[in-house]
Design a protein around this nucleic acid. Structure first.
Lengths: 406, 406
DNA sequence: TTTTAGTTCGTTCTGTTACCGAACTTATTA
DNA sequence: TAATAAGTTCGGTAACAGAACGAACTAAAA
């Protein structure tokens, strides 16, 4: 292969097949790779020699304790290249590094800089560097970063629209600013979308290709996947459940502004309804506590909320027919709410709907960002833009999710 | 290439690129194909020789009237292979042939055999043969058939569930029965899904990859596409808009059985509401006529219907964010309804929604079936199962839609 | 009108890349 | 030692393209 010359289509496919076998099953011998991929032993030896020479794989030792010649085994070189994954929220920002062997390393977390705008950009860049240093990864190995944001990323102009939780991003080219600070390619993605991708990879819905992840916290929104692919929509605004036309009258001006369903299912709506019913002011955790203490008003408010959520789930089921629905977010992951919704679903939707709580919890967007970044990294390094040449991410049991340090 | 030996991956890609160039731009010279595909002239000559030898393409003549050597041009041999496309409805069944050059030939139509079951199977088979004969296509050239059905196809067992319009299909392996009668591979697909695919190919939403086709007639349902792919869902039940949780109370038993929205938007619901309001019995065309004659009850019923439809559109927009929505079906294509819905949308959904009427009208499922069948045919003949090797269907201006004979 | 220059199409020759069947060597266990 | 499995070597084919050149046309000049 000449310098600067892309390999032929066939070699891109073969490279991807070999890499996928090592990512999924490493440490693995060349003869095993040949059996798994159907390529000949001599082709595998040549490809492995090239990958080893380029630094992507290395020998781990030899197999032992079986009839026949012992084999040399290979694994991915973890820090040969890596990506950063960032979860930017209104109150916290978290960053982690995912390496070439699909390990998601220990994350670092800070309160979000309340000044917004360029201050948050600097903060993100610093956290990424710290995450790399914290895990002894040379910064130069970083190839790209995926940033989950609480809003709708405008991919063309790098801005974030409809992002009430972080100030200063509506007019700033966030992507260009981050790219300048980090010196790598940046992908912006909605944080709920990343959550859906994370759960699809190694969470509650792993292996289910038609799914919905519903986040209920400040507001209500969903990340949807159909046929294993994320549903973005024409304007990157898929999953905006707050604007479903029920809960309150969708033709009212307030519904048009805030969202008919958003008015009654987010933090503000739940607190308002409890206050109107009881005459008391409580935050949402307080309302859940009052439920546990037998408060009839808390019970009524949360029963109503569950009804609205059940209807939102029914709407998604009527439209995209997911195989599984996962609830997450500070409100959505409360067991009290999930149980109510689960009981109500058979009463308002004719087909069975499998409902679950997010397994990855608060780490779900970090994991989703890792999935997006690793897929992109594999494609860049080994697929050479050839359609159909892909490396699938390994299943949960192969992936290492390193706990955050205290 | 040895007999019975699949070409290598690279040759599958090259074959698809050459075929796509000829399908889109034929008659076309080999030198032009080389320029379009980036492959060398000698490779193109070899591939064209092979395709001509195999009977897929033929010479059409030589170019004239330009500087430089005149070139030999090639086109697809139309009847080298073809597919059948069938639209099975409760009252009518239509069949047409689409050939390798992506012409959709004149269709044949009959009333659906009211006996249902195997009688309809025989009828479909006969109509396909007649469509071939009617267009002078030898039957042996037929490679597969796509059948659009008013229900949810169970792809594993070949049955049709939730199909109230045609009797006898709930327990019959429809696909096996058709395959036995026609002697070719059968694909079953929901007819509204096929409509979405048809409009996406050469209809009102050509070029838009995130779209919704809403059919309103006996009931209400949608075909959805996201990122250019059909949304089927986990149980092939995406787009069942009748079960959206508004219109009537979704927790009522009748809503659970029939669908909360279905109860008020289909033929039965519209007639019932008009009867309750006016004391008169009219069919739906009659109600639209009465609207034109100034009947206040008709106006109220249709205003309400438009409101429900607008909310259904809003629900789809909140969930999948389509770039365009198309209305079809006997009720959905009425101009009076479309105008009302178009005026109501900005009042219940904050982002602009582009709404249109189906351009292909009653032929839309036939066209969608042709798209599915031709894509499958190309893949079978030329892609050899290689992921990423694809031939895109030509745009509307290249496609010929032959009118049905009287 | 004829000749020449320029342009474009299509073929031939030769070489590289990618891959694999067959055969053989090497390195283990039973 | 025999059997088994990993890994290498040899020789061949498929696919592709650079370079070169002949073939076939138009346009301009003589």
């Amino acid at each position: 292969m000449a310098v600067n010359e892309a390999p032929r289509i066939s070699r891109q496919f073969s490279l991807c097949m070999v890499m996928e076998a090592i990512v999924h099953c490493g440490p693995i011998s060349r003869a095993s790779i040949a059996k798994q991929t159907g390529l000949s032993k001599q082709t595998i030896s040549e490809i492995a020699r090239q990958l080893e020479e380029d630094g992507w794989i290395r020998e781990t030792g030899r197999t032992q304790g079986h009839v026949g010649r012992s084999a040399v085994t290979y694994e991915i070189v973890p820090d040969a290249a890596c990506i950063a994954t960032v979860d930017l929220g209104g109150t916290k920002v978290r960053a982690a590094i995912a390496d070439l062997s699909c390990q998601v390393l220990a994350e670092v977390t800070e309160p979000t800089d309340a000044r917004g705008g360029v201050h948050v950009i600097s903060q993100i860049a610093r956290l990424c560097r710290e995450a790399a240093a914290h895990n002894d990864i040379p910064y130069e190995r970083l190839r790209m970063a995926v940033v989950g944001v609480p809003g709708v990323p405008d991919q063309e102009r790098g801005r974030i629209v409809m992002s009430p939780n972080v100030t200063g991003f509506e007019t700033l080219d966030v992507r260009a600013a981050l790219a300048a600070e980090l010196g790598v390619e940046i992908v912006l993605e909605n944080d709920v979308n990343l959550a859906a991708i994370g759960e699809h990879w190694i969470g509650s819905v792993a292996g289910v290709d038609d799914l919905a992840y519903i986040a209920i916290g400040t507001g209500i929104g969903a990340g949807l996947m159909v046929g294993g692919d994320l549903v973005r929509g024409f304007g990157n605004a898929a999953g905006e459940l707050g604007f479903l036309p029920f809960g309150t009258d969708p033709f009212e001006a307030e519904s048009l502004k805030v969202g008919a369903l958003e008015r009654v299912t987010g933090t503000v709506g739940i607190r308002r309804r409890y206050r109107e019913l009881s005459g008391h002011e409580l935050d949402v955790p307080g309302i859940f506590d009052a439920l546990g203490a037998g408060d009839v008003h808390a019970r009524q408010v949360l029963d109503e909320t569950a009804r609205y959520v059940a209807r939102a789930v029914a709407a998604i089921c009527a439209i995209t027919n997911p195989g599984k629905v996962v609830l997450g977010g500070s409100i959505g992951s409360r067991r009290e709410l999930v149980e109510r919704v689960r009981d109500l679903l058979p009463l308002c939707f004719p087909s069975p709907v499998e409902l679950d709580v997010s397994e990855l919890g608060s780490r779900v967007a970090i994991v989703g960002g890792a999935a997006v970044g690793l897929t992109h990294l594999h494609s860049t390094l080994f697929a050479g833009g050839v359609p159909g040449a892909e490396i699938s991410l390994p299943p949960a049991k192969v992936v290492k999710l390193v706990e955050a340090a205290q």
